[in-house]
Design a protein around this nucleic acid. Structure first.
Lengths: 184, 184
DNA sequence: TAAATTAAGTCAACAATGCTGACATATATT
DNA sequence: AATATATGTCAGCATTGTTGACTTAATTTA
């Protein structure tokens, strides 16, 4: 009962748990699953000294060939600087090419090269393999349920973008009239 | 047919799509869902000039009060330096306290303070709210299915850690006999 | 008991990827 | 002709990850 025992006057010794009415399990599952999910691409790209940012740019340019820089910024939700840095390298290294916009010649439309498509596919295959292996062990309705859950986790404003990537809505420029918020 | 049209000799103009046999939808859902999922904590912690790294440390110390530095490194899978930087601040600012290990006095057992617990709970509540709101719109079996999916997405070696956080396995030190791989 | 190992802390340095603000250039729009 | 837009670029900063080396204290082993 001396001062010795009062070392850390307010150390809490019992764990934060589901009893607090919070689903810690899902919170942590998202953390660990996402970490392992991006580890594969990270490893593959390390040999090219590319990182996660390069991967994202490459991915979305492959999913939307001809996308403009501005629309790409909307999808990635990063600043022009952050994009420019990695985009420059991808172009220099011949994974992506630019073409002047047809209607608006200020625009730069981005396309993957053959080399860029191959790399994007290789990485996506690897990620898809992990997903398919996970789903294999589970009942078939799991896939649809997980999609629905993840979709509902996305901010409503972001959802049209996700949809447009899958059903070929050309509406990318219509989506989010871009009140010139981001994109400094 | 002049050179003009051969601008970008190998620009690919058709999108990478599910026809390549890859579930791009799930890949992208994971990306967007995770991004929005961590945006809330990021915002909340910005006022304290803390980042994502601080959040993770605070979270797991609250989930496993008394955890040692070495075990925390195993969970986070980062280097000692990366941990030290943020842990130091959290201790200085009174969110976490240290106590010498009982059996092994080299160890530093980490505990949240009252203040630290409150902050961790506040953030977790916010994340849980987003999860619950997403699930509300969906059939009840979605939660279990999503848990199972995310769990299966985690590398097998990592799974016992996730489990131990939820059922109170004291076994954290037993989990992964730590062949002294990481933790430089 | 002496030597080796381990847990933790620290230092210096570096890399990736976010951010800001400012400014230039070409092109469109009003 | 004036203004606005799309892109590119410069300089600089913050966070968070990395490496490798070294210290101190405590434990374990030979």
């Amino acid at each position: 009962m001396t001062r010795k025992e009062v070392d850390s006057p307010d150390a809490i010794t019992f764990p934060m748990s589901e009893e607090d009415g919070i689903s810690f399990e899902l919170i942590e599952l998202l953390f660990f699953a996402y970490r392992d999910f991006v580890a594969d691409p990270d490893t593959m790209l390390a040999s090219l000294s590319y990182g996660r940012a390069h991967h994202r740019v490459l991915h979305f340019v492959n999913r939307r060939p001809g996308i403009t820089v501005a629309n790409l910024l909307d999808i990635l939700a990063i600043t022009k600087q952050s994009l420019a840095r990695v985009l420059k390298q991808l172009i220099e290294d011949g994974f992506i090419t630019q073409q002047q916009g047809d209607s608006d010649r200020r625009q730069r439309m981005l396309y993957p090269t053959v080399k860029g498509r191959e790399l994007a596919l290789e990485i996506s295959k690897c990620q898809a393999r992990r997903i398919e292996e996970a789903l294999q062990t589970l009942p078939p309705e799991t896939k649809q349920a997980s999609k629905a859950f993840l979709y509902a986790m996305i901010e409503p404003q972001g959802r049209p973008i996700v949809r447009s990537l899958n059903h070929g809505l050309e509406a990318l420029n219509v989506i989010e009239p871009a009140p010139s918020s981001r994109r400094k």
